[in-house]
Nucleic acid binder design. Sequence first.
DNA 1: GCCACGGTTTTGAGTCATCAAAATAATAAA
DNA 2: TTTATTATTTTGATGACTCAAAACCGTGGC
Lengths: 222, 222
Amino acid sequence: MLPSSTVENYLKAIYVGETHLVGGQKLVPMGQLASALGIAPGTATTMVKALAESGLVTYEPYNGVRLTPAGEKLAARVLRRHRLIELFLVQVMGMNWDEVHEDAEQMEHVVSDRLIERMDEMLGRPEFDPHGDPIPTPDGQLAHRALETLLTCPLNTPVTVARVTDQDAAFLRFIESHHLKPGETIQVEERDEASDSVKLKGRDDQRMTIGARAASKLLVST
Amino acid sequence: MLPSSTVENYLKAIYVGETHLVGGQKLVPMGQLASALGIAPGTATTMVKALAESGLVTYEPYNGVRLTPAGEKLAARVLRRHRLIELFLVQVMGMNWDEVHEDAEQMEHVVSDRLIERMDEMLGRPEFDPHGDPIPTPDGQLAHRALETLLTCPLNTPVTVARVTDQDAAFLRFIESHHLKPGETIQVEERDEASDSVKLKGRDDQRMTIGARAASKLLVST
DNA sequence: GCCACGGTTTTGAGTCATCAAAATAATAAA
DNA sequence: TTTATTATTTTGATGACTCAAAACCGTGGC
């Protein structure tokens, strides 16, 4: 039984949901899953029970859901495809990084392994996609770097933007126009709790202030 | 209402079915449609009635189905996408022409207009795909050439292979290995009704004999 | 002109994925 | 502890799409 696009999307959402979980708890709650997929909560429950039936997830009623090794393998495969496709569309086809998400979202379910392999080859076996998200290897391994957000990194120290953890097109365009894409070097000059904002010095010493919410989505390496 | 992949496939099948019709009759019979789509005849009937309901086709019970202008526009769009994708996969990604059909079949329904436009641009607004099939323009026009099959073209006269009207991977590999791809120059030396075969002289004066059924799928320009 | 046969349509049913809304469980508040 | 709030699960239904098999044309053969 090859998984349907729907199943692949559930697994992917659970996978990334797990990474967003704080602390030792490992179960993704149904509500979070449902809203991540844009479906009604009841639908998520029904579907997750079916996934548990086929051994892809572990389901604890009223607590949440977790991937089994089999489910994790499939999820990593989908994520790998998604990120390779995004990088391909940007790197090879010259599309903007804020307009490739939807295409990747669709293509990840349908293109052949051969085509994915060809993309991987043309891109030189990349480890990160245009947003700095790590690309799982064919066997599901994720490269992981120790990164900090702009809310936690040291002040007045040059840091390199490594990853942007938001796919929203408007946000991505903002990042791009302010030269905050992965690879850029910046410094955090000041954080202000009261105004919920962060002051930055960017390329050409350009000053800018961004909200804490946005700052938390920019990951940097020191 | 954007059409589902299923609807797009029905329209595409009717579209190419129409071109395969001989003479003045213009209706694609249900049986042909069903077998082209690999579905049960009853399913085709049900679906075609729904398509007629939404104004995409004209349906005459027991006679067949024909596209309306609206349906034809949609069908041409899908075919354009399919053929651009195939050409892109071969030309840009270096895939073999016998292995791109399935990917194109899936991608044609999901990739964005922007991505298609980008492919078209990268390919230099091509008129024909790797099989020599014409690529409809954005407004649905088809370039058409006066072509003959190897069964009807003049004998002992150099002709250029222009189109291969079969997507079967094994057949395409045969064509390729015998240097009969679109663009190659060949000559028909002899036709034998009795043995149902055609004798050819190909590249480097190499002689070969192919069956009439295969010969009818090779279109040439004189 | 009748009948048989191939193609077509109907019928009845099933799968997958979804929703809204009612019922229920867990949790936080009073 | 009892209640109120919020999250989750059930229930009942729907919309696409599909099949198998029974019923139904329509035409060619005799």
